[in-house]
Design a protein around this nucleic acid. Structure first.
Lengths: 208, 208
DNA sequence: TTAGGTCTGTGAACGAGAACTCAATCACGA
DNA sequence: TCGTGATTGAGTTCTCGTTCACAGACCTAA
C-alpha cells in the first residue's frame, strides 16, 4: 500500500463496488475483471482499476479480482469488518424512517442508540431501542459509538454537533440543511434532500 | 446571459445560495456582497461571483447584489418561480417521511401525487393526497407533473423509472441504491443513504 | 466634476480527478 | 519450457471546476 493520498471520490465509490460484488452470483466464476465490474456498476474500467490500485496489488494480471478476496479487502479498507454501531439523533419523520431503513445492513452498520430532545418521546422503545435524552450523548464515548446520523431541525444542529464531537464522534451523516462546523479530524457527510430536489427543474426541457 | 456551459456543481450550489438569502435579515441592508454571502454559506467569495456570473450581470460593482433581486433571479434560473408539483413513488418508511418533509417548501416544490404498488395502501388518503396505483403514473403528463421522487425497493426501480420516463417525467430524485438508466434529457439525481453512511468509518481515527 | 474606495465580472493559472495507454505480469496449453 | 492471450497497475494526458488577480464599473463625497 504505497501511501499516496486517496481521493474522496474513490472512497465514495468503494461501497458501491462492495454492494455490486455482494449482488454478484457467488457460485460459478470466482474471479471478476475490472471490465465486468465496471459494466455492472456503470463506471469505466480504468476507474475501477485505479481506485483499487491505491490500496496495493489486489488483483492478479491476466485473471482479474478474486470476488471473495476483493469484498474482504474493501471491507478492510472501509473498516467495515466488524459491525459498526451508529447513533441516531432525532426521532422525527426522517429519523423514524432511517431507523427502519434496511440499506445499512449491507455495510455492517447498525443504529444502536437513539436520542431526542422532545421529552414526550424520550423513554419510548422503538425497534428494541430506548430513546434517550440528548444530554446522554456524552455517554457515546464509553459505549464505543463513533458514528452519528443527524436528523433534527436545522436550528439545533450545531449545538448537537458540538455535543457529538465532545463525545468523541468522528463521523457524522448530516441530513440537516445547515453547514456544520467541525474540526478536520471529524468527517461530515451531508445529504441535503431539499437542495437535491431543487436542482431538478433546472434540467427540465423549456416547455415543461 | 452569454451561453457558456454552466457546471453542474454551480447549479447545485444555487439552491444553497437561495436558502442562505432567505434566512438573511430582510430588513436593513438591501444589498449583500459576494464576501458576506460566502461567509454565511461557507464557500469562497470568488466562487459565488463566478457562479452568478454565468447568468449575466446580476450584481452591481461597488455595491453588491440586491437581495430581493438576487433571490428572484436564482429562482428564475432554477425555474422555481411558480410552484412545481412532484410525484412521490413509494409510500414506505422513507416515502412517508418525505411526504411530511417540510424542507421542500423553501424551493417551491410540493408533492402532489403519491403512487404505490402495494394494493393495501392504494386508496388511502395521506396528507390530503390519495395514494394511487403505479399504473396511474401514465397520467402524470396530462397532470403537468414532470418531477418524481423515487423511494421504492431497488428491485422495481428500473421498471418504475421506465414508466416515469414514458409519462414525460424529466427529473428524478432517486433514493434507491440502484443505477437508473435514462435518456440524456432526463436528469437523475441520486441520494444513496447507505453509501453515504458506509464512507464514514474510513475516516475515523485508527484506534476507534 | 473628480478622486478614492468598494465590489463585480472574467480571463488566466492552478489543481483534482477521470480517462487513456501500455509495459509488466500471470495462467494455460502445446 | 515457451508462446499466446488476457488483464492488471501506473505513468501520462485530458477535462472539468476552483481559485486567483485585476481591470473596469459604480457610489459617495468634497
Amino acid at each position: 500500500m504505497r501511501y499516496h493520498k486517496v481521493p474522496d471520490e474513490t472512497i465514495r465509490r468503494l461501497p458501491v463496488y462492495l454492494r455490486g460484488l455482494c449482488s454478484f452470483p457467488n457460485d460459478g466464476s470466482r474471479s471478476i475483471s475490472s471490465q465486468q465490474l465496471a459494466e455492472v456498476l456503470h463506471v469505466k474500467s480504468p476507474q475501477v482499476r485505479k481506485d483499487l490500485s491505491y490500496f496495493g496489488d489486489i488483483g492478479t494480471p491476466g485473471v482479474g479480482y478474486d470476488i471473495q478476496k476483493l469484498k474482504k479487502h474493501i471491507r478492510t479498507i472501509l473498516r467495515l469488518n466488524n459491525t459498526h454501531c451508529a447513533a441516531l439523533i432525532g426521532y422525527g419523520n426522517l429519523g423514524a424512517a432511517l431507523l427502519k431503513y434496511t440499506g445499512f445492513k449491507t455495510f455492517c452498520v447498525e443504529i444502536s442508540a437513539v436520542f431526542e430532545i422532545n421529552p414526550r418521546k424520550i423513554g419510548r422503545v422503538v425497534q428494541k431501542i430506548k430513546i434517550e435524552d440528548v444530554s446522554n450523548i456524552s455517554s457515546l464515548r464509553k459505549r464505543g459509538i463513533s458514528v452519528a446520523i443527524l436528523a433534527i431541525p436545522a436550528l439545533e444542529s450545531q449545538d448537537v454537533t458540538d455535543k457529538l464531537i465532545d463525545a468523541g464522534v468522528g463521523g457524522i451523516l448530516n441530513f440537516t440543511p445547515s453547514y456544520l462546523s467541525a474540526p478536520t479530524n471529524v468527517k461530515v457527510v451531508n445529504i441535503d434532500i431539499g437542495v437535491s430536489l431543487a436542482c431538478l427543474p433546472y434540467y427540465l426541457p423549456v416547455g415543461a
